[in-house]
Design a protein around this nucleic acid. Structure first.
Lengths: 204, 204
DNA sequence: TTAGATACATACACGAATGTTTGTAAATCG
DNA sequence: CGATTTACAAACATTCGTGTATGTATCTAA
């Protein structure tokens, strides 16, 4: 109840984020009041307003904590497709599925994002960035597929743009379905799932 | 202002649902107040509370109006897989994609559902039914795939349960991605997309 | 050592949306 | 043709969360 040292302050900040993450995931974002977050973290709303501007800022911090590590994965592949772009893409698709199925924090945050919510214009801005992000992923996948076509890894009549739509839908759909209702072992199925899908692409 | 005839009352009910559908889709469910719905329909909140118990009941009515026609499609196929179950499933997957891409009302409602929201426990009940619905879809698809394996339309090592996961993820992912950010012609791509995916299944 | 900044707790003010109650004119029924 | 119900409008009360203002005990730096 009194002034804490810097490390203690940072600890309460993390506790607030942990509490918010759990509450957002279980109770929903809109139904999670700042007072609930504060109580769950063992502090009061005063602490919340000290560390964050409002609920939207907490939300962004919670999401960034999990999504930022995922962001860079595709970038590196798009920059250097290597000599087996299609195989590398298949492998990375499986890697991401396994990562989602393994990392608890990513799973929680994805569940929050997938279940969705709507908290007025504050959050709309963040969600717009998320959509922009997803579009960029499709573009990167498309560019990788263009290299794959050029190397005859795909039949020439396959349009990379269309195939990119299919890839993102499949991987995104798997992530979504499993996060919302995980009653199967995604981590162990990941390699097989990506294999049959990419085989379909190869045989056009 | 005044007492309306029964048909007029039913008309205002439909207008309320139309207004709610549009507002839910554009502004979001949580941000849409009952007063907004009433004004958009040219009435007051009095009319809203006359026709519906609360916002959750409006939401269910809006959703049911669009999703109920979709529900029966899979049922009939699961009951009678025919002599080409895999082909029929592929065709129906394409049909659903085309339906989603063509019907404006379905698109709106799916956009509401996909963007998500959270309106407390009132809505949780409906969403739980939705999830249960989706699980049942997977089961039906799985049963169709079992018939397909029995008829040697799929390699014997393909596990129907796993393949059902893939099918629902792919179709659901396509619907989701296009509804959220439709900048490609899903109706025209539907047949090709389902073809390459099911070819992948066939070649295991 | 002390002056100020820090990290909160506490209390208050405010709007906004909901649910409810009451009013009312016209439609429907006997 | 009268009584009653219907289909709303309008006003009210209440809750609930947010934002902010203020208090305060400690930490920190000079």
């Amino acid at each position: 109840m009194v002034r804490r040292t810097k490390e203690q302050a940072e600890a309460t900040r993390e506790q607030l984020l942990d509490a918010a993450e759990a509450l957002f995931c279980n109770t929903g974002v809109a139904s999670t009041t700042l007072d609930l977050i504060a109580r769950a973290a063992g502090v009061t709303r005063g602490a919340v307003y000290w560390h964050f501007k409002n609920k939207a800022e907490i939300f962004e911090a919670v999401c960034d904590r999990a999504t930022s590590p995922m962001g860079t994965m595709l970038d590196t592949l798009a920059n250097d497709p290597g000599d087996d772009p299609l195989g590398a893409l298949e492998r990375q698709a499986g890697d991401i599925l396994i990562l989602v199925a393994t990392d608890a924090r990513i799973r929680s945050v994805l569940e929050i994002l997938f279940r969705g919510f709507d908290g007025g214009p504050e959050f709309a801005e963040y969600l717009a960035r998320e959509e922009q992000n997803k579009r960029q992923c499709r573009c990167q996948i498309q560019s990788i597929l263009e290299v794959a076509v050029a190397r005859n890894q795909l039949p020439p009549h396959v349009k990379p743009a269309d195939a990119a739509v299919a890839v993102t839908a499949f991987v995104g759909g798997l992530m979504h379905d499993w996060v919302i209702d995980q009653d199967y072992d995604l981590a162990n199925m990941a390699r097989w799932l990506t294999k049959i899908f990419f085989n379909g692409l190869r045989h056009g």
